[in-house]
Simulated scan of single mutants.
Amino acid sequence: MKKLILITLIISYLFISCSSSNTDNNKTSSSNNKEILVLAAASLTDVLTELANNYKTETGTIVTFSFASSGALQSQIESGAPADIFFSAAQKQMDALQQKDLIDTNTRKDLLENKVVLIAPSNSKLNIKSFTDITNSDVSKVGLGEPKSVPVGQYSEEILSNLSILDTIKQKSVYGSDVRNVLSWVEIGEVDCGIVYATDAKIAKNINIIAEAPEGTHKKVIYPIAVIKSSQNKEEALKFIDYISSDKSIETFKAYGFTVIQ
């Protein structure tokens, strides 16, 4: 009987020890999980979400995002919002932050290039075949990004100005808070046409790509990325930038329609 009791006590001790060890290991594993916050242009939503999921699987680091227009994100950073990385859809917003010494200039680099396209609902009966056709009287609503804060809106106005049709189009323009806002309007037929990035058009439903912006009508659509100077996770932020700059990630960007700057 005494031997049986002793054996039982030993087994119980070993079980408790193992359980305690596993709990400690789980706590250690959980505490090792790192997290970074990336402020990124809305047009990067799908591709960055995929890359972040892959990164978490490979490294355990959690990457969270705030997707919006680059201008809105710039304002957040200027207001002191905590974040680690800024990934803009234009140089203008990154330049403004650099001038205010709010980004780590040593980490800044141009990573991607995009194109600007005119799109219309797939069931449209309007005879829109080019950018100049949106001046036609039967086109009553044109979806554009708000030019003060949305880079695609800034590119759009530049294109329309160089085509000498900006004043005409302003009278029928509906302005979205970011490029995905404009895209959704075209998808559901809320506007007759809209100007978005080629990568957004690529993933959209129920739309037709009418034309790419004529060459020379706007600045190149370059996406710069940099670590925010106030980041508390600069080492982890740099690791993520290195990851999305790798050959494997480059292929993912290309699959979504981006041109990678190397």
Rank of each mutant, 00 (worst) to 15 (best):
I85V: 11
I16V: 14
I10Q: 02
S12D: 10
R108P: 01
Q74A: 10
Q74M: 15
N22E: 09
F65Y: 13
T132F: 01
A52T: 05
A72L: 09
L111S: 03
S79F: 04
N25F: 14
D138N: 15
T45D: 10
I16E: 04
S66W: 04
S124H: 09
K34S: 02
K92R: 13
T23Q: 10
P82S: 13
K92D: 10
N54D: 15
K125E: 06
N127P: 10
V47H: 03
S124V: 08
A96V: 12
Q91C: 05
L73R: 14
F67E: 06
R108V: 03
V38E: 01
L44K: 09
I119T: 02
P121H: 06
S122D: 13
K109N: 08
S124D: 13
D110Q: 05
A96G: 11
T59F: 01
I134M: 08
A52H: 07
L73F: 12
L39F: 15
G80A: 07
I134V: 15
I119A: 00
I128Y: 00
A40H: 07
N54K: 15
N33G: 00
L48T: 14
L102C: 07
I10C: 13
V38L: 02
S31E: 10
S19L: 09
L37T: 14
I77C: 09
I128A: 06
N54E: 15
T64A: 12
P82F: 14
Q99L: 11
E58Y: 07
A68K: 14
P121S: 12
K34M: 02
V63D: 03
L97D: 04
T135M: 06
P121Q: 06
A83V: 13
V47T: 12
S29V: 10
L97V: 09
D138Q: 09
T45V: 11
S43A: 13
F131K: 04
I36E: 02
T28K: 14
T57H: 06
T105H: 00
N32T: 09
T64P: 08
P121W: 00
T64M: 03
S20L: 13
E113C: 10
A68N: 15
I77W: 03
K125V: 09
Y55H: 00
L44N: 14
N53R: 10
N54M: 11
T59H: 03
A120Y: 05
F87W: 07
S17V: 01
N127Y: 14
S79W: 02
I103Y: 03
D24H: 11
A90N: 13
